Amino acid sequence: MDRGETFRVSATKADGRTTVVVAGELDYDTGRPLRAALQAAITGGAHRVEVDLRGLDFCDCSGLGVLMAARVQARRAGCTFGVVGPLAPMVRHLFGVVGVDGALSVRAAMPGPAVLSGGAPPRSP
């Protein structure tokens, strides 16, 4: 299976907030769809953008760069930006080592699964 097929991203809008749900492996090869979804959320009038990473199994530095660039873009647009977890151990470790867990405002998700378009919830870490 192609690595791009193991990565999924979808977005939902409600009450001025856009939630971008991510599942699979985020790296150089798969970052483009997430970058596009985040840019659309930020420029689409959301007051808050949340990135739900509960289904993210892997993230490398290029994937982290997508998240940090979106955070900067959101701030410039007057939009709040945050990450929803819990994070997979590898992702949590990367965020901690690099020191971005506070900058990305990682918070625990509300109860219930995140739902990707197509109705399938991402795997739990």
Rank of each mutant, 00 (worst) to 15 (best):
V49E: 03
L64R: 00
G82L: 01
A37G: 11
G55V: 01
V49F: 03
L64D: 02
V22M: 05
V22C: 04
R54E: 00
V20D: 00
H47R: 15
P122Q: 06
A69W: 08
T19A: 06
A46F: 11
L53F: 02
R92D: 03
V97S: 04
L64G: 01
F95V: 00
V72W: 11
A88Y: 00
M1G: 07
L34E: 05
R17S: 08
P121E: 03
T80G: 03
E5W: 12
T80N: 06
M90H: 02
G78R: 11
R3F: 07
K13F: 11
P125K: 04
R75G: 10
L116K: 07
V83H: 03
G16S: 15
V83N: 00
L94C: 04
V97D: 02
D57Q: 14
G31V: 09
E5F: 12
A37W: 05
A77F: 07
T80E: 07
G45W: 14
V72Y: 12
G16M: 15
H47S: 15
R76F: 11
R32A: 15
A37F: 10
A40Y: 10
A46T: 07
F7W: 03
D27G: 12
K13H: 14
L34K: 02
R35K: 15
G78D: 04
T19L: 07
T18W: 06
A108T: 13
R8D: 06
T43P: 12
R92E: 03
T43F: 13
V91T: 00
R35Y: 13
L67V: 01
E5P: 10
Q39K: 14
V83K: 02
A77Q: 03
H93P: 07
S117K: 14
D29R: 14
T18D: 00
A120E: 15
R35N: 12
L94D: 02
R32H: 15
G102W: 12
G112N: 12
E25Y: 08
M110D: 09
R3H: 09
R123D: 09
A46I: 08
R32M: 14
A37D: 01
